[in-house]
Computed example of a mutant assay.
Amino acid sequence: MVALLALTACSGSEADDADGAGGGEVASEGGDDAGADAGDEGDGGGEPTTITLLSPVPPSVFFFPAFVGEELGFFAEEGIELEYESIGEGVSMTSLLVNGRVDVAAPGATEVFQGLDAGQEFDVIYDYYTQAVEGIVVPTDSDIESMEDLEGATVGLAGDEVRSLLAFSLDQVGLSIDDVETANVGTSGSVIANSLEQGDIDAFVGGVLDFASLQVAGLELRDITPDEVGRVPGASFAVTPDGAEEMGDALPAFLRAWSRALHVGLQDPALVEEIMREASPEEWEDPEVGAATLDVAIQLQEQGPEDYGSLDDEAWAVGVEQALVAGDVESELATDEFLDGQYLDAANDFDRDEAETAAGGSGS
């Protein structure tokens, strides 16, 4: 079974003392369990290799391949025992990664940049989300067709943290944040929907969960985020050089199992729902919210079918530029110094039809 652990909030220096939920020690301390022997396990012989994945969220449709892959036996077939850890508020994922407390972390682009800017050593090896998790939307019946049309408009913000996204996106089309009015409207779907419908705001800047709540409130949306900004990956897999070396063949085996599960889930969202209703029942307490959240999760992960995890150098370069404008980093970061695509061929080395057959012929 996928082991579920949780990390409580701690700073980078405190990370060495972090324990898993229930008092169990966090796996892979110092990387000793990181699995240099995985190459001998993929054929089903011997003990599986444990890989600890650090996610920003508890079990969720946003990371469904962990649970789909477990249910369908993909990780076991690759000789991997996956431990899925989530973090408490205020935890630096990359600090836990570089301190050897987890094998693979799934930080967003901003945290990647902040960690690298602080001198942490790790590589991004697989883009899991192919889109940004935040964006700018308007109702589908709005006269606003693009960012250029926002001049003189009132834009609602989910919070101050998305102001830099709005400013950067406006800058891409020759406008500045001074060319619009802004208002903090929070994240209540019904409140935001009413504000848009009544014309109190003309557009909204928020995150994918905010957009899902708007859909549940009955509001159809159109995304006007500039393409180059919307392509900045919302979540990627990162490893340290030492951790990757210690994991050995277990690392590409983990990525291949993940890609297989991702492929099956994208082909058959109904299967994802069935599995995630068991793995994350709280997301389905309101079936409408669960369905909307699943739709958003599928959209974020849409990719392939031949290049799962592909690293988009141009999108990452835009992300670096955005981080500089936002003040998240102090100096330019060269993408070729932290993007490492050496595992992508192995991650995609599987038969798509066989993966679908394992799921009961989904997608066929």
Rank of each mutant, 00 (worst) to 15 (best):
A3R: 15
S11N: 15
E14T: 06
D17E: 14
G23W: 10
G23I: 03
S28M: 10
A34P: 01
D37Y: 12
D37W: 13
A38K: 11
G39Y: 12
D43C: 04
G44V: 02
G45Q: 13
E47K: 11
E47S: 12
I51W: 04
T52M: 05
L53H: 09
V57I: 11
P58L: 05
V68W: 07
F74L: 12
E81Y: 08
G90C: 09
R101M: 14
V104G: 01
E111K: 02
E111A: 06
L116N: 04
D117C: 04
D117S: 12
G119M: 07
Q120W: 08
Y126K: 00
Q131T: 13
A132D: 12
D141P: 00
D143P: 06
D149F: 05
D149W: 11
A153G: 05
G159M: 04
Q172L: 09
V173H: 05
S176E: 14
S176R: 06
N184Q: 12
T187I: 13
S188D: 15
S195Q: 13
D200P: 00
F204A: 02
A212E: 09
S213D: 15
Q215I: 01
A217G: 06
L219W: 02
T225Y: 05
G230K: 09
V232K: 04
P233N: 09
G234N: 06
L251K: 02
P252D: 03
L255P: 00
L255V: 01
A257Q: 04
A261Q: 05
H263I: 03
E282S: 14
E283H: 08
G290E: 09
L294A: 03
W316P: 01
V318T: 15
A326M: 08
E330M: 04
E337N: 11
Q342L: 01
D345Q: 13
E354F: 00
E356N: 15
T357N: 14
A359H: 10
G361E: 11
G363H: 05
